[in-house]
Design a protein around this nucleic acid. Structure first.
Ligand SMILES: [Mn+2]
Ligand SMILES: [Mn+2]
Ligand SMILES: [Zn+2]
Ligand SMILES: [Zn+2]
Lengths: 213, 213
DNA sequence: ATGTACATAGTAATTATTATCAAGTCAAGA
DNA sequence: TCTTGACTTGATAATAATTACTATGTACAT
């Protein structure tokens, strides 16, 4: 079927960039790096070539559970560990005594062709961050995304009040119907912009004030 | 944060359906089954609850590399094997001698929290299919997807001719420019609808004729 | 009984990847 | 040298899986 695998400029650069990396980059991480040298390259070209190079046995693929595919210049069989927080992937060395020998070639009627071992945990960087958060008691919402118009309205209402408010208080100073308030409050709490000092009373957090600027 | 986990009807049904399954179903597989009992349930509800039940430690998740998440009612720690052809997932029993002991709690600064072992291979069903294909010498293109308008035009042109045609011949009886022909031919060959008996001459295959109906 | 927190259905948005296609490049052969 | 076709690319559309949003609905503690 395929006779020749041309070594195009794009392909060379992709391969070179992967060789330089020790971080098991994803297709789009590589794309961002390569763009600096080949500003006109397409993301599809990066995906396409990584797949072709993998099929040709030139590079290897690291399929870490249920997320982006990562690529590895290293063809030697080895295992990986990834961070459940930031999804970074590193090599890991298993002592020989722990290596699994796939002696059984069949089980449950399967013809077994391989085995993947992956460890997971929290990487050094994320451990540091965790410690800081604990010290600072800074529970900074994970997703500090943009506010919707309604969320903004509720948050502004809370900002104006000096005491914790119930949802009726909020309804009276906004254009929103009482029914809709709790939805918005829930979303705002998730983002860490609103806290509930006592049941059914809400107040704006420092984070929330910052978000309004 | 979360005080109560309500047991709604939807949640009950989802849990019951998962308990019945031994197949590590995906969210949408469960959705299809549950629809029969709760026709108004939303796919988002299934996703949401599977995630909530997993977070609550009631069920477990099987994240097989780079594909759909699957769920498991079985909370015991055990390993899996999956089919690279049809993506089916089964439990696998490792002899104790092969179990990895995560004795080292740290490596490369990681705080290790676990390890996943997954085998892969070809399941009994797919092995049978493979054999049949080999016998019948039926190389049926893998992706027998729909034809684009241009592909259809080229294929119809080939169908009318009794002898193999070059791309000029095709261009003369279609609305397509000569340049575009080769692209379409390539795609059609991939699908197994066109064959090249001699260099630069093409003819329609039996598969191709079927595809035109 | 009521008010609040939690849930749901329906839908939009997002993320990661693959497919399509016109146009470009290249190398082998007439 | 000219043609031809295989291979490749960039741009963009399409797909697949999952998550986010929001109005509305419901369970449950008081
Ligand atoms: Mn590696
Ligand atoms: Mn299982
Ligand atoms: Zn990390
Ligand atoms: Zn299979």
């Amino acid at each position: 079927m395929k006779h020749t695998l041309r070594m195009t400029h794009q392909r060379e650069i992709i391969l070179a960039e992967l060789r330089k990396s020790t971080s098991h980059p994803t297709a789009d991480e590589l794309y961002e790096r390569i763009r600096k040298k080949l500003p006109r390259i397409s993301l599809a070209t990066v995906y396409r070539n990584l797949e072709i190079l993998f099929e040709a046995g030139v590079i290897s693929k690291v399929e870490i559970s249920g997320r982006q595919k990562r690529f590895d210049y290293d063809l030697e069989e080895h295992d990986h560990i990834y961070c459940v927080k930031c999804h970074r992937v590193d090599n890991i060395n298993l002592p020989k005594t722990q290596k699994i020998v796939v002696r059984q070639k069949e089980q449950k009627g399967y013809r077994i062709s391989g085995c993947r071992i992956e460890f997971y945990g929290i990487c050094p960087d994320c451990r540091k961050k965790q410690k800081k958060e604990l010290e600072g008691d800074n529970k900074m919402g994970c997703s500090s995304c943009e506010l919707s118009d309604k969320q903004k309205e509720v948050l502004e209402a809370l900002a104006k009040s000096n005491d914790p408010c119930g949802s009726k208080d909020i309804a009276s100073v906004t254009s929103l119907e009482p029914k809709q308030i709790s939805c918005q409050i829930t979303a705002l709490k998730k983002k860490g912009y609103v806290a509930s000092p006592v049941r059914c009373k809400y107040e704006i957090t420092e984070e929330g004030k910052k978000a309004l600027d």
